[in-house]
Amino acid sequence: MIASTRREPRIESYLARLRVALRGLPDREIDDIVRELRSHVDDLAGKEGAGVEAALQSLGDPLDLAQTYRSENQMLRAQCSGSPLTILQGLRHATRGTLQRVTVTALYVLGYFGMGTLWAGALEKLLAPSRGGLWYTPGDFWSTTLVVGGNPPAGARELLGWWLVPIALLVGWGVKYASDRIAQWWIARYRRAKASQEV
């Protein structure tokens, strides 16, 4: 009975669809999931005599099931990762609706944009010391500009001097660190909320 359920085409077709939909997870993990679900179907259809159809129905749609595994895996990886791409993937699963997804992603990208600008400012100061820097027109506080790839405004005075380099590098790194931590906090919060809604 059990040997026959293993070769049952409906089971093979279900597991093949699941395997394809799980793509993106580590191969070892995919093998483990498929093996466990095959064992479940074998037990339910064979030992408990529920029938193949009922056994597969208890697992639900293979695409939905794979999505559940993938989103959980990607959120978990994002929580432990320092890679912005992994964190972005995690954020994609940790948002509800397009508006929230776009907003959260844009804020995260903005953090990296801020880091990039500060680091580019530091590099500009090193490569073109006479142009690069933080410039300020006396009497106009709002004119303070970090010059990257251009000329300072006429009559402007430079602030910070060479101190700009370590400060911009440090603040840029701080912005990146804060963006990552906030994104990971968001993902953890989403996962906790989701965990109480399982069933």
């Binding site: 999931i33 466990e36 208890s58 697992l59 939905d64 595994y69 959980e72 399982e198």
Partner: peptide
């Protein structure tokens, strides 16, 4: 009374944690 499709991913999550 839960579906297998709920319990297996949940076991996977608890294991990952």
């Amino acid at each position: 009374v839960l579906s297998a499709g709920t319990v297996y991913p949940l076991l996977s999550r608890l294991k990952a944690e």
